[in-house]
Write a protein that binds this DNA or RNA. Structure first.
Lengths: 95, 95
DNA sequence: ACGCATTGTAACGCGAGTCGTAACAGCTAT
DNA sequence: ATAGCTGTTACGACTCGCGTTACAATGCGT
């Protein structure tokens, strides 16, 4: 029932994980064990947080992997809900 | 922190949505607006519940799309957590 | 002013995942 | 036997995460 335009989870990573620690994108990517481009794509909203990436973030920053998964799936769901009307699904009842 | 082998969300769809109503897979697929193969793949655990499918299920069965998203992401996360050890991620601290 | 690090991004390929159609075999009920 | 439902295979289309490489732009220290 969350209706409002959630931020890309990548924004959250930058704002609440990287900036507070004063780290560079390059350094964080290296620690995460992914390419700089991969992390950059996430931070700038061009890619989502994959399940594997959620685990990486949880290790590197000492957070919970569930929170990253939840943020991402809420974001994905919000986009899908935008097209709820064009889905052409019939309501089901007992037969 | 959920540690236990979660069921494929497809199992849940069959057990708690389709069987109770006594509906056929074919009929449900038609109502959902997807192919019979697509639904069958989900029910038998060969495909996950996409964000769009979560919305379709929520319309057809009058459930919440969030619950389907959560079940799927918990399942995906559980699989990713199985490889937490081989991820080779460095713990980050302030610089 | 000059290097140097950092950053965003484009181009390309790879593998995985969702989805569709078409077709098949197996099952059950009429 | 005919019909319906089911799982599954094969094929292709599309999206997405990820890697490498390379480029342009920015900022910083000397």
């Amino acid at each position: 029932m969350l209706m409002h335009n959630p931020p890309h989870p990548g924004e959250v990573v930058r704002e609440f994980c990287i900036e507070p620690l004063g780290l560079s994108v390059t350094a964080v990517a290296k620690s995460l064990g992914v390419s700089r481009k991969t992390l950059s794509s996430i931070l700038n909203g061009h890619a989502g947080i994959s399940p594997e990436m959620a685990v990486r973030l949880s290790i590197a920053f000492g957070t919970s992997s569930e929170s990253w998964m939840n943020q991402q799936s809420q974001f994905d769901l919000w986009r899908a809900e935008q097209h709820r009307a064009e889905l052409n699904v019939e309501r089901l009842v007992a037969a």
